[in-house]
Write a protein that binds this DNA or RNA. Structure first.
Lengths: 122, 122
DNA sequence: TTCATTAGTATGATTTTTCATATTAGGTAT
DNA sequence: ATACCTAATATGAAAAATCATACTAATGAA
């Protein structure tokens, strides 16, 4: 009915999903957490350059979007553990699809060094 | 070798690919262009709320990233046509993977109305 | 001549995002 | 009592993204 291959509802869902991953450190945080549970300080040390404030806010946003689970312990000094949710783990096919695309079109990415069409260096 | 399921190079490629689609109007522009070639003014009218300046800059960024092709004609008044590139069309599997995820986890998205686990309202 | 049209560019304001630094609470160890 | 440790908050500055408005060039139509 529309000239477009997808509905505008689907487009909106796509935009929303994209926004869950939009943020200076979110993908890197998820990448770290894909290795297992980490506490706040470990995450901080694993992400050189991030400030405490940014780590807190990015984690809170990920948590609000249901991609990260936060577990505080009633201890002193405080201990708070972070881990991926199942929803975040289910993003793997998305990640894979992007990687397939990125490999196919690596010439569009900076830092890489491939030619547009099955071309290798002589 | 690493505790992570993907390499940091893959993570960087993922981040870069994501950034190509990051921008207030980029997905909506691509969505419009998925219906076929459009000239600047048509695109502008099709995107209520966008300013000329934003449309220009978003299109230029998409073009620089190889997702949009720009074809200016030497006419007066000027005519410039925009269309998706093959690379942009190849993003379809990514779009599909995100949609599968979004449907599975629609309770995480705002605007929707599904329950977390195969639950419907009584 | 004057006006209308189109795809921009110029300029500045506003909003959002990110960064930098300091401070806090409350137990534990000394 | 004092210093220490951790996760977090407070505050303000800087940078980036977005928005709002006005202006331009060149030709054809009136």
């Amino acid at each position: 009915m529309t000239p477009y291959p997808v509905s505008s509802e689907d487009r909106d869902a796509f935009v929303q999903s994209l926004q869950m991953l939009t943020g200076r450190w979110k993908v890197e945080i998820l990448w770290m957490l894909s290795g297992g549970v980490l506490r706040f300080g470990e995450l901080r040390r694993a992400l050189p350059g991030i400030t405490q404030h940014m780590l807190t806010t990015q984690l809170r946003e990920l948590e609000a979007h249901g991609l990260v689970k936060r577990t505080p312990y009633a201890e002193v000094p405080p201990r708070v553990e972070y881990e991926m949710t199942d929803a975040a783990r289910d993003l793997k096919p998305v990640f894979k699809a992007v990687m397939v695309w990125a490999r196919e079109h690596s010439y569009l990415l900076s830092g890489g060094d491939a030619a547009p069409d099955g071309e290798t260096h002589p």
